[in-house]
């Protein structure tokens, strides 16, 4: 792995390689460069997960002259496919070094936060939704009960926008979640359930089920479960396999005006 990264850097195939390194006692994403080849030996594969492909696209928006490589688990790879299909990055513009995140104990794999069942308190079990549920298990519930449980989850929202900000496939320049006519300003919780349903609809054909949104949600709303259901519909009704290939157009029910080619981030 280290040799491959060194090779990419030294042959000039990439200028920056985004991987992980222990810093200040934390496994942090880190940009390795050719100026410091010794440091590449310190590269680790995890266990923390960050949206490296999102960082790469942000860097390229400000510095299109750079060539970037990333360490990619399956989720990073799928996200990069979605970003490519949506023309946020050109095919092959980001070099990928695939790392296996197979959960078998037989191999030293990069742990994935989404492979561990999360523990929740009694209150959430009583009136909320267990984030570990699957869409079918949730659908086995009475519709009224399911509705009230979702509403309980949604009204906890702090409107931190963390779900959007961490999401590798949220790249719109104008976000509907900040649209004044759609989502009122100045109140908490935000318009429930509109806020969450707007995001859910926008995740159709985009969400690659990385679970980073749910990891970032301070109030443990089962966001991933919600988007999983949305993408089950996308797969069943439209036979669209989000993030699985580059050979498909962006998924769109209507003409999608929100998706535009990447621009430099604000203030850059």
């Amino acid at each position: 792995m280290h040799e491959k990264v060194l090779n990419l850097l030294e042959t000039g195939k990439v200028d920056i390689f985004l991987g992980y390194k222990m810093m200040a006692g934390h496994p942090l994403p880190h940009a390795f460069g050719r100026h410091n080849p010794v440091e590449v030996q310190e590269m680790i594969l995890g266990p923390a997960r960050y949206p490296l492909e999102k960082l790469a696209v942000e860097i390229l928006a400000a510095r299109p002259d750079l060539k970037i490589g990333i360490l990619a688990r399956d989720c990073n790879r799928r996200a990069l496919n979605v970003l490519t299909v949506h023309q946020q990055v050109a095919p092959g513009q980001v070099q990928v070094l695939e790392v296996s995140c197979c959960p078998s104990p037989l191999q030293r794999h990069a742990d994935c936060s989404s492979l561990e069942a999360k523990e929740f308190g009694a209150g959430k079990k009583e009136i909320g939704i267990d984030n570990n549920l699957t869409p079918d298990r949730l659908e086995a519930m009475e519709p009224t009960e399911r509705f009230s449980r979702w509403m309980y989850e949604f009204q906890k929202c702090l409107k931190c926008y963390g779900c959007r900000d961490i999401c590798p496939v949220c790249f719109c320049r104008e976000c509907s979640l900040e649209h004044e006519d759609l989502i009122g300003t100045g109140d908490l919780p935000p318009e429930v359930p509109i806020f969450h349903l707007v995001r859910a609809v926008h995740m159709a054909g985009r969400c690659i089920d990385c679970g980073l949104c749910e990891d970032a949600c301070p109030v443990d709303i089962p966001l991933r479960l919600l988007y999983r259901k949305v993408n089950e519909l996308v797969a069943d009704l439209f036979d669209y396999k989000t993030g699985l290939s580059l050979e498909q157009p962006p998924f769109s029910l209507l003409f999608d005006k929100t998706a535009q080619p990447a621009a430099a981030p604000h203030g850059a």
Partner: peptide
């Protein structure tokens, strides 16, 4: 130049979450 902020995912205080 500062481009943005991310939560530190392994930090014991916020465990990968931040407020707005």
């Amino acid at each position: 130049k500062l481009l943005g902020t991310l939560p530190l995912k392994t930090h014991p205080v916020n465990e990968g979450k931040l407020c707005i």
